[in-house]
Amino acid sequence: MSAVESSLREIGDLTDAEIFALTQNIKDEEASRNPLISPLEPLSTLKTEYEAGAQAFVRKIESLQQPPHSFAGIRRARGDGNCFYTSTAFAWISGMMNLTSENRKSVVESALLDLEKSLNSLKAVGFEPIVYEDFYEVLTDLIRNILYPVSTGTVLNPASLLQQFQNAETVNSIVIFLRLLISSYIRLHPDDFEPFLFNPDTGDMVDIKRFCEGWVEAVGREADHPQILALSRALKLPIHIAYLDRSGGDSGTGKVDLVEFDSVEGETSPILVTLLYRPGHYDILDKKAEEPAEFLVS
């Protein structure tokens, strides 16, 4: 029997799970063609994509464009299962860059100090330095680069930040460090998380260890509320998620559910990350519609 005949016969034998895996492969391949983080584009472009289809989505995008939200742009992240982490990291770092110069210095310094302190949490839950120190270095070098010309000779600017986020090794390292940070935070605050941990595939409750190993530390597993809450607290960074879904229906008011993960009560942060969630995917929302003109020249 030829190889082709044999593989055709095998396709007929596939179980549902195998067919699902095959479809997932195709999706993964599609995803790998998109940039990890794209340049800003007007939110109206996204609206156009839905105009022929879901009116509920169109209404909700319109309401995001209007006060009090007033978002004008979207920055897309690659849908590779890490998009929450990639989006948050980009928005966080770019948020620090956009602060006034005096604010910027103190915020960057305190972020670096907090990250250094977080290594104690990683050690406390049993991670070996060998598994996190290289990733930690990549993230902290990038953040330090906001203030100081590290190895590149220049400080980070919007164009070079976007360029850094095209480098898979850099982005993956940051994503993994954030995953470990979240895992250690959840493990060290069991009372805050244990009652809310479910296996997203089956809906069964799972314990903290299983949740962290299977859905936080595992590369490519998408984030849900527990991970978002833990990251927001660990980084002292408010993260707001605008849910773009069909709730309210096509004839609804278009009111968008905005879920606010605010780090700790009473603490104010000069940076706010707002992400747009569509089922299974996160992108970044921005008040600007496109990259500034000087960005395109440089």
Partner: peptide
């Protein structure tokens, strides 16, 4: 496979 994590050495 799907549950690989860089935590594993």
């Amino acid at each position: 496979g799907s549950e690989w994590s860089p935590v594993l050495s």
